[in-house]
Computed example of a mutant assay.
Amino acid sequence: MKRAFVPTAEQQAVIDAALRLGNLKVKAFAGAGKTSTLQLVAEHFGQRLGMYLAFNREIAANAARRFSPHVDSRTMHSLAWASVSPSLRSRVSLQGEPPHELAARYGLGPLEVRTVTGKAVELAPFEIGRMIADGRDRFCRSADIQPATRHIVVDEKIDEAVAAQLRTYLLPYIGHLWEEGAAARAVG
């Protein structure tokens, strides 16, 4: 690849530092010419492998068109994502199910619970299904290896002792929902 322009004094200083030191960090404002400078550095390194990290896909795609094939252009997120274990990665792609259908599939009807004021209220199947799905989702966003009662959010208006019982009651359903997803991911 032929050099399209003569580097500025600042760009030449970066090229020299890269050739002398290897790893370095270039900080500059947007539009200051960082990508052009890194292109020059890549040209000076010949066919040595390099990596250009960008904040978003559009910038990474643009860089991929500008750099030689031996420079991998990608987003920081994609680099991090590639290092995540498959078991954690599978947690992100879970299929949703309407909460009322989830409750019906598990045979869960309305539940009567006591509020902090002592009043009895009914939790509809939709609310119960939502608590199960949300509990599974909170587990998936955690580093925990199995669902726990702490992943289940109960409305603060419900008496705390009743909320604790409700969490214990719903926990097995969250486990089932997670296991169903794991089985589906293993098959697909």
Rank of each mutant, 00 (worst) to 15 (best):
G31I: 12
G31E: 13
A32T: 15
A32Q: 11
A32C: 10
G33I: 10
G33A: 08
G33H: 01
T35A: 01
T35W: 03
T35D: 00
T35K: 00
T35N: 03
S36N: 13
S36E: 13
S36V: 06
S36H: 07
T37L: 04
T37R: 06
T37Y: 04
T37S: 02
T37P: 02
T37V: 09
L38V: 12
L38E: 00
L38P: 07
Q39T: 06
Q39D: 02
Q39V: 01
Q39R: 15
L40W: 02
V41C: 08
V41E: 02
V41G: 01
V41T: 03
V41W: 05
V41Y: 03
A42Y: 07
A42P: 08
E43M: 15
E43R: 15
E43K: 13
H44W: 04
H44N: 12
F45D: 04
F45V: 08
F45T: 03
F45E: 05
Q47I: 01
Q47P: 05
Q47M: 09
Q47F: 01
Q47E: 12
Q47L: 03
R48T: 13
R48M: 13
R48E: 15
L49W: 09
L49V: 09
L49I: 11
L49G: 08
G50M: 12
G50H: 13
G50V: 14
G50Q: 11
M51N: 03
M51V: 15
Y52Q: 06
Y52V: 09
L53W: 01
L53G: 11
L53C: 09
A54W: 10
A54V: 05
A54G: 04
A54D: 01
A54Q: 05
F55M: 00
F55Y: 12
N56H: 06
N56S: 07
R57F: 00
R57P: 00
E58Y: 11
E58F: 10
I59M: 12
A60K: 08
